[in-house]
Design a protein around this nucleic acid. Sequence first.
RNA 1: UGGGGCGUGGCCAAGUGGUUAAGGCACCGGACUUUGACUCCGGCAUCGCAGGUUCGAAUCCUGCCGCCCCAGCCA
Length: 551
Amino acid sequence: MTDNNTPTNFIRQIIEEDLASGKHSSIRTRFPPEPNGYLHIGHAKSIVLNFGVAEDYKGQCNLRFDDTNPHKEDEEYVEAIKDDVRWLGYNWAGQYFASDYFEQLCGFAVELIRNGKAYVCDLNADQVREYRGTLTEPGRDSPYRERSVEENLDLFQRMRAGEFEDGARTLRVKIDMAAPNMNLRDPAIYRIRRGVVHHQTGDAWSIYPMYDFTHPISDALEGITHSLCTLEFEDHRPLYDWILDNISTPCHPRQIEFARLNLEYTIMSKRKLTQLVAEEHVEGWDDPRMPTIAGLRRRGYTSAAIRDFCNRIGVTKSDGTVEMSVLEASIREDLDRTAPRRMAVLDPLRVVITNYPEDQEETLVGPNHPKDESMDSRELKFSRELWIDRADFREEANKKYKRLVTGGEVRLRNAYTIICNKVIKDVSGEIKELHCSYDPHTLGRNPEGRKLRGVIHWVSALAAVPAQVRLYDRLFTVPVPDGIKDKPFQEFLNPDSLKVVQAMLEPSLADARPGERFQFEREGYFCRDDKAADKLVFNRIVSLRDSWGKG
RNA sequence: UGGGGCGUGGCCAAGUGGUUAAGGCACCGGACUUUGACUCCGGCAUCGCAGGUUCGAAUCCUGCCGCCCCAGCCA
């Protein structure tokens, strides 16, 4: 869809300059998720950036799993991540794991030790914190900072061999304990983690490298030219560069930071999304209310719409929070063009056409798309008894109300016009059904001398197919759920984020394939749920724009 | 009170000293309409603030103000 008009942003400008100056003859990027959770729309921004840039400048983009912390990671996530990236429409040039480089990483660590630039430190975590100083005070050198190369080599080898307990020692890089940038105060590059099973390397290692050490080296080994990451890593760039400047790698990628995505009425923190799942506020990572790729996919979003969204929001260094309406506009624009139209009554109210023969049923046709004839048409069954939506009838209303009122006439979409003659209520006063009469001369043309109030959708009661329809609303009640001081984000969960209704659908919908999308006219876009494939269940992707009552 | 960033209309975002400050979303008018949809027309900012440089500044300089990130053996 609107993957057209290529975006322009500061990162693309840098790339263009690098290409023009000959600094690089081709570019290579990478998307480097940690496999500790599912991908969300914020990752999509990074994916579209990294893969998009590679595509547009005839370069390559790798998929790399940043799996240096076996504690939090799992194979389940690597498979899910691959699924999501593929679904978004991208193919990676190479698939790697940071753990592929563990042996080489270790070699570079030894190189640093040999050059006197790394040392084994026996301080425990608390002590390291004390020695590090604070934001305003410099730190102090570790008492182990000046160990001999031989001792460091020996100790590091024994760390690797599993001789020491978790937390007993770390390998630290020797930079500057008084650096104003905390990341430069002799950061640890290796920690001991014995007895954990790594999803890729099993129990082969008892030491694991840290992100700050692993990332620049992984980038360099893969020949990454532009290493794109989010703003919080800005302070890490000096360390990224220090690592590459102090070991013998083939190249020195440039790290460039951009702002992560924030979306109103949802949260993007992997940790918090994990909580939503664990605390069962949602049905799982693919709950249609989740901002995860899996959730959006199940909700019925198209990957084209998500790509379009990512291009619409742009890439900058200023953090902001994007309104939901932008995402919604992307999916509406896609589906308006591509989704076949259908009629579905979400809150059924019986209508009896009293002047229509009791045993008669006729077949009408409805175009699948009002503007695209190539999409063909489908059959509609018309009969004496119909369903219309309760919201489409009022006993009385002013002329602003363009629906059915007693004594008023409306068009049944793709069919005849009807006038409501009588309202039947039960003892409690609730409307049970409507008695209407139709005008047999209004098929395909308007009555003369009478003005119609409007057009409403309907379904033949005889042919209707019942189905469950799930109506989704925003997951939270406030724009920034995790931005309110002293209040956990769970307090702002929207109790009405899911409403389940029993609807009556036009018969052709019974054949909908799981995952197939439609526009239910005057209601919104819906997608047949593919998890409940044995039952007829539709998810509302997004409602139609509704300007009623706005002016 | 240390360091690193950011500040263009309600929300994103172009703009890199020289037209009336792009565009999208939202919003407000209006046209069209067998979807209160779509489409189409029209409307909607002087660029955080204050000084300065310049013939000319959102773009350069200075000083304020505001917001974000950093004290994991997480990424």
